[in-house]
Design a protein around this nucleic acid. Structure first.
Lengths: 93, 93
DNA sequence: CGACCATGCTTGCAAAATGCAAGTAGCCAC
DNA sequence: GTGGCTACTTGCATTTTGCAAGCATGGTCG
């Protein structure tokens, strides 16, 4: 499996990169991600589980029954890829 | 829709980025892509149609009934994104 | 205490995407 | 005109995604 295929295995699923992009701004709660991204709740739960298992993010318990999702170093390392891909998407030519 | 979402709309589908990566080495024929990537033939046909429609690649007629698929400038502009994402996938930390 | 409410999910089921296998179509060599 | 090579298409099973509704936990307020 090529390096690219390995990467896509982790962040290639639908919504995965968008979730990570949102977390680049700092830790977010479940409801925030859901509302900001418009991702279906079952998909969000599934992706967060997968991304946590892959070491891209982790759960931070907050007070009450709330928690925040924050990127690990491995997750933060996706910033450049997200920026570059975003720039590509912005260009029309 | 964010820039990243726009990019994923084009190259976010399964196999799409892997096809583009393969074409970075130069034009390839249908059968080559199929064998090298192990992508199902109906998916390959679908993706090539979508990527052509998106202006990422184009068909070059060769002799007989063969053709080659080659990246456009827009497609070549994905090189950096693919390299960066590949590097991320390579790292274990 | 107990009815309410917010948050973070899980569950059931329909729709869409993906994958596998087999078949079709055009072209050339013989 | 038969056979082989290439590039697909087609039918159908499996998997993924999406929508809507429900459940669990903990706090709040009377």
């Amino acid at each position: 499996m090529s390096d690219l295929a390995a990467a896509l295995d982790i962040v290639g699923a639908r919504w995965a990169l968008l979730i990570v992009e949102r977390l680049l701004d700092g830790p977010q709660r479940y409801g925030d991600l859901q509302r900001d991204l418009g991702v279906p709740t079952n998909m969000l739960a599934t992706r967060l589980r997968e991304l946590e298992a892959a070491g891209v993010l982790l759960r931070l318990p907050l007070r009450h029954n709330t928690r925040a999702y924050a990127l690990t170093d491995r997750g933060l390392a996706l910033r450049e890829a997200i920026v570059v891909l975003g720039n590509w998407g912005k260009n029309d030519a």
